[in-house]
């Protein structure tokens, strides 16, 4: 069977402990919460840390506080299942519950945490392979090699951001609380990422993501749609998160964030701008969907063909908006109803 490489495990009880352990051990140290992303990667030797700092014992980071009116604080160690099933969150920000509830399998959602899903390693089907497989193909930039096998002429890694919850949190204007040796800081989730398959997190390695904070929900309507082959297990190969600030029937502000089409969640601001001050008509939605698909630039390194993923971006954005507008899922359905 595939087994983990040896490591020293230091279980933290407090954030302070974790920071201390992280500081003690130097660069070959990694954080682990639910382990559902890291352990498979370790078994494939995608990382080879000497020390793991375990966060799962930090009780203070487990749980959801707040309300729709005041906003929510979600501890980074809250399991995906609890996020998906939290009644207050579900009512205020249904897209987040949807996204959390679509991650992998029920078992994995009992283990995996929201913090882990936000920070989930980027994925690529040249990279998420065993060491023997990667050796056979000649390794890649992201681990042990010197070229990107997806885009061999490129100087950078094109592994794909594969979080379901990050695009949603980004679209909702969430902020992340990061704790480091020099204290803590709050950064917008939108600023937590950068477009590089290796250095995809703007978080410093000595910082710990401790909380995710959601603003008051008033007027927010949101949706998340996920493309994948099966209804379980599979990572997104396209995610569409849409959040609208509504006033009456008019969109005051909109955010559209695409998942799994770049090395970070990718916002579609030009498309969102088309919505501002407008009512959600089928015609407008169709135009927004076309605009939103423009920043979608998938490459051939996940399931499904990349032209198909690109093509689906428009369809999924339209569907998300149509859902929020209370329209039937596809324009074709409308014709048939009429």
């Amino acid at each position: 069977m595939l087994r983990l490489p040896p490591f020293t495990y230091r279980g933290a009880r407090t954030v302070g402990d974790a920071l201390t352990y992280l500081g003690d051990a130097g660069p070959d140290t990694m954080l682990v919460a639910g382990g559902t992303d890291l352990y498979p990667n370790l078994k494939r030797r995608q990382f080879e840390p000497k020390v793991l700092v375990g966060l799962s014992g930090i009780r203070e980071l487990d749980g959801v506080r707040g309300s729709a009116d005041a906003g929510f604080v979600i501890g980074a160690l809250t399991t995906l299942r609890r996020v998906a099933e939290h009644p207050g969150l579900r009512a205020a920000f249904p897209a987040l519950g949807t996204a959390a509830g679509l991650v992998s399998s029920p078992q994995l959602r009992n283990m995996g945490t929201i913090g882990g899903n936000v920070c989930v390693d980027t994925r690529c089907n040249y990279y998420n392979q065993t060491q023997q497989w990667r050796k056979a193909i000649g390794f890649c930039l992201k681990k042990d090699g010197d070229i990107c096998l997806v885009a061999p002429g490129s100087p950078r890694c094109w592994a794909v951001s594969s979080s379901d919850t990050a695009p949603v949190l980004w679209s909702l204007g969430a902020t992340a609380r990061l704790c480091g040796p020099e204290g803590e800081r709050l950064v917008p989730v939108a600023a937590l990422f950068q477009d590089d398959g290796i250095a995809y997190l703007a978080k410093r390695p000595d910082e710990i993501l401790t909380e995710l904070r959601l603003p008051p929900a008033a007027g927010t309507r949101c949706a998340y749609l996920k493309l994948r082959r099966r209804g379980s297990f599979d990572f997104p190969v396209l995610g569409v998160a849409v959040a609208l600030q509504m006033e009456g029937g008019v969109v005051r502000a909109a955010t559209i964030v695409l998942g799994a089409v770049a090395s970070q969640p990718r916002e579609a601001p030009a498309a969102a701008a088309l919505l501002a001050g407008q009512r959600l008509t089928p015609e407008l939605i169709a135009a927004v969907a076309v605009a939103a698909a423009r920043p979608s630039k998938p490459l051939d390194n996940t399931d499904f063909t990349h032209p198909y993923r690109k093509q689906m971006t428009r369809i999924f954005v339209a569907r998300a908006l149509r859902r929020l507008a209370g329209l039937p899922e596809s324009p074709r359905d409308e014709e048939e109803v009429a």
Binding site: M1, L2, R3, Y9, G11, G35, T36, Y39, P40, K43, R44, G54, S56, G57, R81, S104, S105, P106, Q107, L108, N110, M111, F233
Partner: peptide
């Protein structure tokens, strides 16, 4: 065990009544 990577559910056990993947769980925790 069917994959040891959390991709099949074969190794499921219960921890405090909840199904988890024993291939990705550390006894130390």
């Amino acid at each position: 065990h069917g994959c040891e990577l959390g991709e099949c559910g074969t190794c499921t056990v219960l921890v405090d009544g909840r199904p988890v993947l024993s291939c990705l769980a550390l006894p130390i925790e």
